[in-house]
């Protein structure tokens, strides 16, 4: 690891100024992704600004909005009574990710900012436009079993590995950030980016901006929600595909549906066309299969991830079947 300066300011303003003062400075949260990348010389900040003791922890409810402080650890969210009661989908998604140790360390802000990445990003002997812009993409013609089927470019076909982000996308979260120019709110849909010609940028957060909170509206989806993650082993592995399904039901009729996927794109992927189709439909396997076909229009696979074109729709159907109560887990 290259040498860096470590500072731990007591105030948010000082922390933001400390990052703004150095071109390569970074905020340090749980460090579970950043330190890993620093050890491999993939990220080489010259200054780390430890924000973990800033007063940005905790979960509060104001009216119809739940606010999660950016430094709230993943475990705290997954076990919080307010979350379990109102947003069980979020707890399910978080518990499907990483390991108990990593969930104890990882912060909400840090999880949002974990790098969209693939094995070629880690392999410094291979080209990667995300790691070194302009060098090419090793995965395009390489071993691309884990890679994207939606929204990719010829510059990058990596997927965002976060489970939490998929639930936040389905639940229409907002990311609250603070920076040298003041506070702003970024809808989750606009927070992460597609790779386009600049895969080195995962998000639309400015370098000097600090995530301070995530807000989520309490939805009528809480009772009929399910997060289904399919992976190579039963626990502690990235998704091959995952589906966050949430339904607002009136008896057997779907008033409104929310669907998002992980493991398929550079950002958490919302399935709006399928949601529109499901509105006012009856919860039947036939309707769910049709929704899944609609969701996968435009999906395109590479040499080694053809299986996702079948696994994806099947996972959507299964997630919807469990969420609606049509099937048990």
């Amino acid at each position: 690891m290259n040498l860096f300066q470590y500072v731990r300011p007591a105030e948010q303003k000082t922390a933001i100024a400390a990052v703004a003062a150095e071109p390569t400075a970074r905020f340090l949260g749980g460090g579970t992704n950043l330190l890993d990348l620093m050890k491999r010389h993939i990220m080489q900040p010259e200054k780390l600004v430890d924000v973990t003791r800033l007063p940005l922890k905790g979960i509060t409810q104001q009216g119809n909005i739940i606010r999660i402080g950016a430094l709230t650890r993943n475990t705290e969210i997954a076990e919080d009574k307010t979350i379990l009661q109102n947003l069980p989908l979020l707890a399910m998604a978080i518990n499907a990710g990483a390991s108990a140790q990593i969930r104890n360390m990882a912060t909400t802000g840090g999880n949002l900012l974990q790098r969209t990445r693939c094995p070629y990003f880690y392999d410094t002997a291979m080209p990667c436009n995300k790691r070194e812009p302009g060098t090419g993409c090793g995965a395009l013609e390489g071993f691309n079993r884990m890679h994207a089927i939606f929204g990719f470019s010829d510059k990058c076909i990596a997927v965002n590995p976060s489970d939490m982000n998929v639930a936040l996308r389905a639940l229409d979260a907002t990311v609250v950030v603070n920076g040298p120019k003041g506070e702003r709110k970024i809808p989750i849909a606009d927070f992460h980016r597609l790779p386009g010609d600049t895969p080195e940028k995962d998000t639309n957060l400015d370098k000097n901006e600090l995530i301070t909170a995530v807000t989520i509206p309490i939805s009528p989806f809480s009772k009929n929600a399910y997060y289904l993650k399919v992976r190579d082993r039963n626990s502690y592995a990235f998704a091959l595909v995952s589906v966050a399904a949430a339904l607002n039901m009136d008896g057997n009729t779907i008033k409104e549906a929310r669907l998002a996927m992980g493991g398929v794109a550079h950002k958490p992927w919302r399935l709006t066309d399928a949601e529109t189709f499901l509105k006012s439909k009856t919860a039947t396997e036939e309707n769910f299969q049709q929704a899944a076909q609609i969701a996968f229009q435009g999906a395109k696979a590479f040499k080694h991830n053809q299986y996702k074109l079948k696994l994806g729709p099947n996972t959507i159907v299964q997630a919807l079947s469990v969420a609606s109560g049509l099937k048990s887990v």
Binding site: Y6, R8, L28, G31, T32, L35, D36, L48, D50, T52, T75, A100, Q101, I102, N104, M105
Partner: peptide, 15 residues
């Protein structure tokens, strides 16, 4: 009191 990975924890953060 909480289990963490010491390899990904900077010692300085445990002050």
């Amino acid at each position: 009191g909480e289990r963490v990975l010491s390899c990904l924890t900077l010692a300085a953060t445990t002050d």
